[in-house]
Design a protein around this nucleic acid. Structure first.
Lengths: 251, 251
DNA sequence: TCTTCAGTGAGTTCTAGAACAGTGTGACAC
DNA sequence: GTGTCACACTGTTCTAGAACTCACTGAAGA
């Protein structure tokens, strides 16, 4: 059958449904899902089909299966594919996660020295400062301050950044992003970011500093992100065929 | 079923056999494997079981499946391109830095539960525990505990690990490393590692957990490294062409 | 000559069970 | 009390098919 809604496989539909229930909190992190036989009965499919759905969720690290014990909901899962040039929020949404962005500040002002250096500005030049907080699973997870070089900034300063990613706005303004350079360091939560992230000072965090370049090598965006260690981790898969790097769940 | 060598799953045995045939050149890169129905018949298993074996190989990126066309052996030769599988120390040495290794412990003992899970050992199985401290620029920077699966461990336990990297020792012992999976989290320095690293407890660190696999998908090494944040950072370069990831000294 | 369309063979999804392997519990014997 | 064992419950592996989609090919029709 599979004749109903388009041509999506049954197990994919089940996986999507379970994923939605996990993300909505219907199945809370740490709790056990119903037994596989029970789930397969309630979805009206075979154990094998249900297990294929669970495998999808397991690949996405949404669940953890333990022989003899049960299937448990993993801690909140963030997956940010860094091997593309997509923005963080775009990537998360592509995976179906609900990520909310709130704008804590937006203003054109003089860039501080270290930003001016990253964007190769003259001292005293102004740029667009965009301060955002990313919420995942109802909890603030990332505090991000982005500086955008002018005149690019003037074309995007009035966009609604709660609904549109910075990368999308840049693309709409005709700016093509070619490459990005990022440095990630461990750190502890400082007072300024702690206010936005509602986590005690001194908590382990990842501090990401990223500069994004256009095709002609001009730096257009300088990013400084504080990422809660309790919410995110970095995963790499290295093989002879290549390398992939992912932000993922803190487990 | 599974009556012969222990209780290895049938599909794993088939995956290992196919992987060996691919490695030996019996199935050359770029060529098509026999159809699934033919393979399932020749192995005397169901299509579902054979497909589970193929899924393993697909996860290892040894094969590429194309609906309507066939199953093809992935192009690259996997034995020699270990550049992307360099160890952390090798990575730094290639950048011209002087890295010293001291061995703080070496013993065969029962693997703790989380290690046994990562290496797919039976509870109670023993493995080689190798504890090393990496010094960089004259200061201890990384505390690393590696567990090596037996019988591989028996072939390398007497090597001088202050002079030879674990990966090199594995290669000398005839163990070909195919891929590695690594997770990096931010953390704060715990008392045990603080003793080796001469840094105050609570300092920001990166905690790396890595599992390294052979060609047939067997996990051989489970690594747990504590990396001082004041000494090390992660750098990524992203472009349309690909991704590179390097460890580097904090600047 | 060009288009269409049925046939063939490939991978993919699914059914309806059965048996196996860890994990925990509770009854029973000591 | 304490140890042991049977049993129930969990995830895991496997069988023997059947029907599906996708890619290609070649013959029939326009």
């Amino acid at each position: 059958m599979t004749s109903d809604a388009g041509h999506e496989a049954r197990y994919r539909a089940i996986a999507a449904d379970l994923a939605a229930k996990i993300r909505s909190g219907h199945y809370a992190p740490g709790t056990a899902l119903p037994p596989q036989r029970e789930l397969s009965a309630s979805y009206g499919v075979t154990l094998m089909t249900l297990r294929q759905a669970l495998r999808e969720l397991s690949d996405e690290r949404l669940i953890v299966q333990q022989p003899g014990k049960g299937t448990f909901v993993a801690p909140p899962h963030l997956g940010y594919q860094l091997d593309s040039l997509r923005s963080l929020a775009d990537d998360l949404r592509k995976q179906g996660h609900d990520v909310r962005t709130s704008v804590a500040g937006r203003a054109v002002r003089r860039a501080p020295a270290h930003v001016a250096a990253e964007l190769r500005l003259r001292p005293g030049d102004s740029a667009l400062r965009l301060e955002r907080v990313r919420e995942f699973a109802g909890r603030p997870a990332v505090h991000q301050v982005s500086w955008v070089r002018r005149p690019v900034a003037d074309g995007i300063r009035d966009r609604d950044f709660t609904a549109v990613s910075l990368y999308t706005a840049l693309a709409d303004a005709g700016v093509t992003v070619a490459r990005a350079s990022e440095v990630v360091r461990p750190g502890v939560l400082d007072p300024a970011a702690a206010r936005h992230l509602h986590e005690p000072e001194g908590s382990p965090v990842l501090v990401s500093t990223r500069v994004t370049f256009t095709l002609d090598g001009t730096p257009v965006v300088a990013d400084h992100a504080t990422i809660l260690g309790s919410m995110m981790e970095i995963r790499t898969e290295r093989a002879a065929t290549g390398l992939s790097l992912t932000w993922g769940p803190a487990s």
